[in-house]
Amino acid sequence: AMEMGLACVVCRQMMVASGNQLVECQECHNLYHRDCHKPQVTDKEANDPRLVWYCARCT
């Protein structure tokens, strides 16, 4: 999947907007926009540098 680069696995886009940054699952290393992931990634989750985030598939 490395050839995908830094794109969201849901929408396949790399564009990021304020409040909709890409977050990386620490287990599978897929990237998700906060708005694309279900459930939506919260501000607290996205902005906490100590948080280890896992996508819905890996939790």
Rank of each mutant, 00 (worst) to 15 (best):
A1R: 09
A1Q: 14
A1F: 05
A1P: 02
A1V: 14
A1S: 14
A1Y: 05
E3K: 08
M4Q: 09
M4L: 11
G5K: 15
G5E: 14
A7N: 14
C8G: 00
V10C: 05
V10H: 05
V10E: 07
V10S: 02
C11E: 01
C11P: 00
R12G: 13
R12C: 09
R12S: 14
R12P: 02
Q13S: 10
M14C: 12
M14A: 14
M14H: 11
M15D: 15
M15H: 15
M15V: 12
M15K: 15
M15R: 13
V16Y: 06
V16E: 13
V16D: 13
A17W: 02
A17K: 13
S18Y: 05
S18F: 06
S18Q: 12
G19P: 09
G19C: 08
G19D: 13
G19F: 02
G19Y: 05
G19T: 11
N20P: 11
Q21K: 06
L22S: 11
L22N: 10
L22Q: 03
L22F: 13
L22D: 03
V23F: 11
V23I: 12
E24Y: 02
C25R: 01
C25H: 01
Q26G: 14
E27A: 10
E27H: 11
E27C: 07
C28Q: 01
H29W: 02
H29R: 09
H29P: 02
H29Y: 05
Y32R: 03
H33A: 02
R34L: 14
R34I: 11
R34E: 11
D35E: 15
D35K: 08
D35V: 08
C36H: 02
H37P: 01
H37G: 06
H37A: 10
K38C: 08
K38Y: 06
P39V: 03
P39Y: 03
P39S: 04
P39I: 05
P39L: 03
Q40R: 10
Q40S: 11
T42E: 09
T42F: 04
D43Y: 05
E45Q: 11
E45S: 09
E45D: 12
A46P: 04
A46Y: 10
N47P: 05
N47M: 07
N47L: 09
P49R: 11
P49K: 12
R50H: 09
L51F: 10
L51C: 13
L51D: 13
V52K: 15
V52M: 10
W53N: 07
W53C: 02
Y54Q: 13
C55L: 00
A56C: 11
A56I: 07
A56V: 06
A56K: 05
R57W: 05
R57P: 11
R57I: 07
C58P: 01
C58W: 00
T59A: 13
T59D: 08
T59I: 07
T59C: 04
